[in-house]
Simulated scan of single mutants.
Amino acid sequence: MTTTDIATLIASHMREVSDFPEPGIQFKDLTPLFADAAGLAAVTDALAEAARGADLVAGIDARGFLLGAAVAIRLGTGVLAVRKGGKLPPPVRSETYQLEYGTATLEIPADGVELSGRRVVIIDDVLATGGTLAAAARLLGHCGATATHAAVVLELAALGGRDALAPLTVTSLLAI
Rank of each mutant, 00 (worst) to 15 (best):
T2Q: 12
T2N: 15
I6E: 12
I6F: 00
A7C: 13
A7W: 05
I10K: 07
A11S: 15
M14G: 10
E16C: 12
V17E: 04
V17M: 01
S18A: 15
F20Q: 10
F20H: 14
F20E: 11
P21A: 05
P21F: 06
E22C: 07
E22D: 10
I25K: 02
Q26T: 14
F27C: 05
L30F: 05
L30G: 09
L30T: 07
L30R: 03
F34Q: 05
D36I: 15
A37S: 10
A42D: 12
V43K: 08
T44S: 02
A46K: 02
E49I: 12
G53I: 03
G53K: 00
A54F: 02
D55V: 11
V57P: 10
A58I: 03
G59P: 00
G59W: 00
G59L: 09
A62W: 00
A62F: 01
G64Y: 01
F65M: 11
L66M: 13
L67G: 01
L67F: 05
V71E: 03
A72P: 04
A72F: 03
A72V: 11
L75G: 04
T77H: 08
G78V: 12
A81Q: 13
V82A: 10
R83M: 07
G86N: 04
P89Q: 14
P90C: 09
V92N: 11
R93M: 15
R93V: 15
R93P: 07
S94D: 10
Y97G: 12
Y101P: 02
G102H: 02
T105H: 07
L106W: 02
I108T: 03
E114Y: 06
E114V: 15
L115W: 01
L115D: 11
G117R: 09
R118S: 11
V121Q: 10
I122F: 11
L127P: 11
T129F: 02
G131V: 04
T132N: 07
T132H: 03
A134L: 11
A136P: 03
G141Q: 12
C143I: 09
G144D: 09
T146Q: 15
T146M: 11
T146F: 08
A147N: 06
H149P: 01
A151P: 08
A151R: 04
L156N: 01
L156K: 01
A157V: 12
A157D: 09
L159S: 09
L159D: 06
L159T: 09
G160F: 01
R162K: 14
L165F: 04
L168Q: 10
L168M: 06
V170P: 14
T171G: 06
S172A: 15
L174S: 00
A175N: 02
